[in-house]
């Protein structure tokens, strides 16, 4: 029993017939080939599946594709616009990643964080990223990357 949905993913319109139980993370990765979005825990904890749904950071493993019908979605693949998004560049410059598995979700959450709070304190950054777990970096360079991106974006 398929349900027709229409969405805009990284600026392109997408029409699909989906099973109601299809998760948004699986739609993106398996049906649309956008494997930048990762599935880490699959239990709503780690944030590696974070994408922007109508501009808000959400965990795509905990949203049904049918719930996203009519929405605009941005994944890590949609952030760069000819050149890297300032947050992507700042992660590069500050060594804000090691294995890189958490990075797409982490960067999307940072974009959301800086959108709502353009000049976050260190504490606000750590608190603002509590929905994204990183097993490698110990978070210090991620915090530096966010501070650096904030400067670039405000400058």
């Amino acid at each position: 029993m398929g349900i027709s949905i229409e969405l805009e993913v990284n600026g392109a319109s997408v029409s699909k017939e989906v099973e109601p139980r299809l998760l948004l993370a699986h739609l993106l990765r398996e049906e649309l080939g956008l494997t930048g979005t990762k599935i880490g825990c699959d239990t709503s904890q780690c944030g590696s599946c974070t994408i922007l749904l109508d501009g808000q950071a959400v965990k795509s493993c905990t949203v049904l594709a049918v719930q996203a019908d009519g929405s605009e979605i941005t994944t890590i693949e949609g952030l760069a616009n000819g050149e890297y998004h300032p947050v992507q560049q700042a992660f590069w410059d500050n060594h804000g990643l090691q294995c890189g598995f958490c990075t797409p979700g982490m960067i999307i959450s940072c974009v959301d964080l800086l959108g709502t709070n353009p000049q976050p304190s260190e504490d606000e950054i750590r608190h603002g990223l509590e929905g994204n777990l990183c097993r490698c970096t110990g978070y210090h360079n991620i915090v530096r990357a966010v501070q650096d991106a904030a400067e670039t974006m405000n400058g």
């Binding site: 709503s44 749904l53 959400v58 965990k59 905990t62 949203v63 964080l113 603002g128 509590e130 994204n132």
Partner: peptide
């Protein structure tokens, strides 16, 4: 509650 992603949903 939870984290920023949870609070949006």
């Amino acid at each position: 509650i939870g984290d920023r992603q949870v609070r949006y949903r």
